[in-house]
Design a protein around this nucleic acid. Structure first.
Length: 186
DNA sequence: TCATTGATGGTCT
DNA sequence: GACCATCAATGAG
């Protein structure tokens, strides 16, 4: 077992674009019994809150979006297209309802299959909706800074699959590590 | 290599 | 009843 410690609450309690950029290169750690699974975060998207028409929280506070409206540093996991789960990290203080979608991981340790895409991220870490609302300041699911972080170049693009969101669909809120082979789409 | 489509179910209107 | 922050399989070129 590695002995990283989880990023602290204040890391998440900041504007989502800053947190999104800083998440690139971080390690997402999942402990499942004696198995430790680790992926390096290589692709993410920011969802800024109720004013962001592409964000789930733009529909208001509902049973599904409750976690997004809650305190930072928690996992927001939802089911999409009836079969895939997507993992998000809640940012900013309670009530802001911003979050970051983890779209792709580079394998570091024990990933179950490829994780190039948000549905595959959950599959590779064995995460489902039972993890919705889980505190990332825990020892079985958290994000940590690796011992050595390589210098990276960050690419910004429009988010994937949000064409319904009008002008918000054009905003450059998808971030990924340049030239990384595990990114889901160029 | 690219475009199209089926699978499958929760959420919201 | 329509839509959906997706994926894998299919088939045309």
């Amino acid at each position: 077992m590695s002995s990283f410690h989880p990023l602290p609450r204040p890391f998440y309690d900041r504007d989502p674009v800053t947190v999104t950029r800083e998440l690139l290169g971080m390690h997402l750690v999942r402990r499942e019994g004696t198995i430790e699974r680790i992926g390096r975060i290589v692709e993410v998207e920011a969802y800024l809150g109720p004013h962001d028409k592409a964000a789930h929280s733009a529909r208001g506070r509902t049973k599904r979006t409750e976690v997004m409206f809650g305190p930072p540093g928690h996992a927001y996991i939802y089911l999409i297209y009836g079969m895939h789960c997507c993992l998000n990290v809640v940012t900013e203080a309670e009530g802001h309802a911003s979050a970051i979608l983890i779209r792709a991981l580079e394998p570091v340790k024990n990933l179950d299959g490829r994780a190039s895409g948000p549905g595959l991220v959950c599959r590779s870490l064995h995460l489902d909706r039972s993890w919705n609302g889980h505190d990332l300041l825990s020892d079985d699911l958290f994000i940590a800074e690796p011992d050595a972080r390589d210098a990276i170049r960050i690419i910004r693009r429009p988010r994937i699959g949000v064409d319904y969101a009008g002008s918000w669909a054009k905003r450059l809120l998808r971030f990924y590590i340049a030239r990384n082979e595990w990114v889901s789409r160029k």
